[in-house]
Nucleic acid binder design. Structure first.
Lengths: 186, 186
DNA sequence: GTCTATATCAGGATAGAC
DNA sequence: GTCTATCCTGATATAGAC
């Protein structure tokens, strides 16, 4: 039922999807949905919260690296892969922010900021070590995340390029944009 | 009335905004709206089409430059400024694509692709002239547009940085990411 | 745990008075 | 050109049978 709701919200938008439609997709009658969620708003919030918690959990499992360049590459590849694998959840978590009640909105935004902080910390370390050339780490954080998340708007399975190749190309652009040198793999 | 609708659609989403609410914001009764639009869907499409036509019109008025680096800088600054000045229209034109009927969707998408083609052409020229280092001009196009449009998600008037300064910083990142050298102003 | 039936309300759109 | 009144549909959510 979560899956049906997520797919429908991503496809048509939260406000445009009725509980009846979700029920139909799930294979139950509308009334039965309320066994699993108290209301539609909570359902939306739960989907978004689950997504953000997954994101932070998997991020924290990334192998740490002392080298900022290696850390940035790991983050870049992680971001692309994670977001690609859950395009519906990503879409909903971004597009439906405005349909969250204020309290719920704050909770999701806090998690998003925590994720951004992780990237910003890498950029700051690299700049302090004089391995990156970055005029403003906050702007660079926003710029890179927007750029990487953008993969979801065009990438399609079975297209011209493998996801691996896409990662390579984006990593090259990320690396150059922060003025980092190529590094050798150990 | 267009302005009210645009602002409300941007804030709450097309599906979440009722004609009654638009009427209220406009200062008329609901029935009166239908003097200006045949229906809600057409209203949405008109708003998006107007935005895209404006975008293409202003783009075509950009001074042409033979130098790909200068052309890329002009595009970068134009994109940030134009999108910043119409954040509601940008938001709606991106977020509400899925609420367009198929025929309308195709028309908007065609215009969007035309805009992207303009940037891709600059990148191709620069690469052919060996002034840019770009592994894939299509991906670079997507990556740069996503990065630049992202300014709208965080920039607020009166914040830490002027828009001019933001342009400078983004231009530096764009320039580096495609491997272009700094150029002197004539 | 699920269905049927329904209460209640809000939505888009139209008709006809002024 | 605008308002009032209204049609009809579909929305969320709940009650109560099974």
């Amino acid at each position: 039922m979560r899956e049906s709701a997520l797919r429908l919200f991503a496809r048509h938008g939260y406000a445009a999807v009725s509980m009846r439609r979700i029920a139909e997709e799930t294979g139950v009658q509308a009334g039965a949905l309320y066994l699993y969620t108290p209301d539609k708003q909570t359902l939306l919030f739960d989907l978004m919260q689950t997504h953000m918690l997954d994101l932070l959990a998997e991020l924290s499992e990334l192998p740490r690296s002392d080298c900022p360049i290696a850390a940035l590459e790991a983050f870049t590849r992680f971001h692309i892969r994670f977001h690609r694998a859950r395009s519906d959840a990503v879409f909903v978590s971004y597009m439906e922010l405005r349909n969250l009640e204020p309290e719920n909105f704050v909770r999701i935004e806090t998690m998003r900021r925590e994720y951004e902080k992780h990237l910003e910390a890498i950029l700051e370390r690299g700049r302090d070590a004089e391995m990156f050339e970055i005029p403003d780490t906050k702007l660079a954080t926003f710029a890179l995340i927007a750029m990487l998340t953008g993969v979801n708007t065009w990438y399609r399975e079975g297209g011209r390029l493998s996801l691996e190749r896409v990662e390579d190309i984006y990593w090259e652009m990320v690396r150059k944009s922060v003025g980092a040198r190529l590094i050798r793999r150990g």
